[in-house]
Nucleic acid binder design. Structure first.
Lengths: 218, 218
DNA sequence: CGCTATATTGATTGGTGTCAACGGGAGTGG
DNA sequence: CCACTCCCGTTGACACCAATCAATATAGCG
């Protein structure tokens, strides 16, 4: 661990900036310290799909790969803790614990990706929005212990409507419409465009279409 | 490695049988020896989405997790090489190499899942079909060296139309229609319903909408 | 105060889902 | 050998959800 410390250096990125472009050579790996970043893929004609959301403690880059496979973009101001790749890889071989931790994290990301595949392939626009909100809530809950005995929840959306659309495989107009519809139906309340109140979490989860029991499985 | 051998036992599953149900307790992990299996998720109302395709050498189960997160179904007759989970986990801690290999495989699966997210979220039905065919060809090519100098390719579909639909986030009717359309347009030829000839691979890749150069990146 | 980015809303189109009928091959049994 | 049935696949008619094109708010900011 002290060895890792010796390798690291910090880097800051402003909101909206792209950290790496798909296809770029990457000579470092990194871990998010603060802020939120997104992984996305873009087709020739401009259609884009987000394929991952990176939160503090998440890992950027893949050991053993030269070029980046996705665009990595900062959605908020970001602080990265970087390691030059070669030394990191060597350290990983000598220190099994690091690899084990990476395996854990990668398996979690794989689960998240697969949950997202169900959303993209089979859920309606309304269910997609509800699911996204539920996921953001779950994440918030696990970070800051903000649950007040199952009462009302509120939070800020860290994403624009366009980013939500790219995440959900929708257009931004559809996102806007469905958010309005959920508001009209009393599932959510909009304090401002980005600040949302959930009067009844169970109701939201029902709209999300998940087969979960409704508990917050942190 | 010899230790691993001491733990293993084999299990066979008939085509169509479910190996584990989502939520089941799993007291083993396994590796596919022969055959093809699928990972899928199902919603309460029956909508299902495949989230993974397991080929020989692929891994089943997650170290450190009690219950299965997905349904695992054999699409062909299958032979599994199983290890009881607890001893396997202990061995993994003592033998870093196994963990490193698992990490590699998991990262590959994550890449595949993310490629699939782009397909599910942003591609048209026609592009989805073309992409699936391209992926099957790439897999076949990497297994058996069947490429004849960029000439015509042919192969068998290992999936029913319904399985294709579950994989692509479509209905089986739409799959059937788009396969017919690709045939009508000369992109593919149907020797039988499951045996396909590709007269022009570049054309197929173009239909798939990928930004790749068209080479077969094995 | 305009300027720009973000968001909402409307009108219309089009792709895919849904419901339904039909085709065709493989296996089964008379 | 031929009907029968089942499963898989195809095709058609129609409906509907979400995309597209377009106009209009709203908020932040120099």
């Amino acid at each position: 661990m002290e060895e890792l410390d010796a390798l690291k250096f910090y880097r800051t990125v402003e909101a909206g900036q792209t950290i790496v472009w798909s296809g770029d050579e990457m000579d470092f790996v990194a871990s998010i310290v603060t802020g939120i970043a997104t992984l996305s893929q873009t087709m020739e004609d401009g259609r884009t799909q987000m394929v991952g959301l990176l939160l503090p403690s998440d890992f950027v880059g893949r050991p053993g790969r030269r070029a980046a496979a996705y665009d990595v973009t900062a959605t908020t101001d970001i602080v990265l803790c970087c390691f030059r790749k070669r030394p990191f890889e060597e350290l990983m071989i000598r220190t099994p614990h690091i690899g084990q931790r990476l395996l854990e994290m990668t398996l979690d990301e794989l689960d998240a990706a697969r949950e997202w595949m169900l959303l993209l392939g089979r859920k309606t626009a309304r269910e997609k929005i509800a699911t996204l909100l539920a996921i953001i809530i779950r994440r918030d809950a696990s970070l800051q212990q903000k649950l007040r005995g199952g009462g009302t929840l509120e939070f800020d959306l860290p994403l624009t409507r366009e980013a939500m659309a790219d995440y959900l495989g929708l257009t931004l107009e559809t996102v806007s419409r469905q958010v309005s519809a959920l508001k009209r139906d009393g599932v959510i309340e909009l304090v401002s465009k980005r600040h949302i109140v959930i009067p009844d979490l169970a109701r939201l989860l029902e709209e999300a279409g998940d087969d979960s029991d409704g508990g917050l499985p942190i």
